[in-house]
Amino acid sequence: MLKTVSKTFKPIVVTSGEPAGIGPELCLQLAMRAWPVPLVVLGDRDLLASRARMLGRDIGGLNILHLPLVAPAIAGQPNVANAHYVLQLLDRALAGCVAGEFSAMVTAPVHKGIINDAGIAFTGHTEYLAEHTGTPRVVMLLAGAGLRVALATTHLALKDVPTAITQASLESTLRILHHDLQGKFGIVQPRILVAGLNPHAGEDGHMGREEIDVIIPVLNRLRAEGMQLVGPLPADTLFTKSVLAGSDAQLAMYHDQGLAVLKYAAFDEGINVTLGLPIIRTSVDHGTALDLAGTGKASANSLFAAVDAAIDMTERRI
């Protein structure tokens, strides 16, 4: 179903990601659907054309913004020589978003290992975009199957999680989440569920003190400003239907607290949104799947969902 969108809608740019991965062929599938806004696929035109030929397709329906590869890309075999190309895709998309040429960017997966092998420090899209927009703090939000799960900590060893969650970091995370739920998702008065860190959310300090020492004081302070925050809630029942009812987002304290549920519920339709950036950025929630590259078997559901979310957020942006 086509949505009506204002005529001033700038295109959404989709970075095709690691050239040896599934990103380029997922982008080809974007041509299969009629989108309510123009999409621009950023990548090497010849790469997209050759991947299309492998799969018996063509690139006729795609609007491609060409950036040349450094070295030829073979499906399934990432090449350090192309690490700079992968980052140039991000730089170009970001510059276009900042300049108002694009309304949002959607990213296909990159291969962190190969970028690091090229001698470039890179921990992920989220951190890269934060650094290149001068954003001191961003929040990772994963969405799908009606859930919007934000993370207080991301790819951190579990041992380091309790120490990493301070009153200052948690307050900042909640402010970004609240602000972007209003500004990018158009939710006027968002209701956010906040998980505890410990079993039974600490049960009054019997199973850990972080709830009492860190989480509860922050929630009280922000509630006094009018935020609707529920918690700290025991994490094991937070994601059950009756507790989720009426909530707009859920804040998990660590990666697996939030992602185990999402990965199961949303399966291949989950997406990743970076909150706190001055631009709109959504992403697939899967990797480069090198073993599937060139086979045409990879599902584009997550990419489609990421584009849908970028469109929604652009429409609702305040």
Partner: peptide
């Protein structure tokens, strides 16, 4: 490995 890791899975999928 720990309480919530298993309990979240069990209670969510109910």
């Amino acid at each position: 490995m720990y309480h919530d890791q298993g309990h979240i899975a069990i209670k969510t999928w109910g």
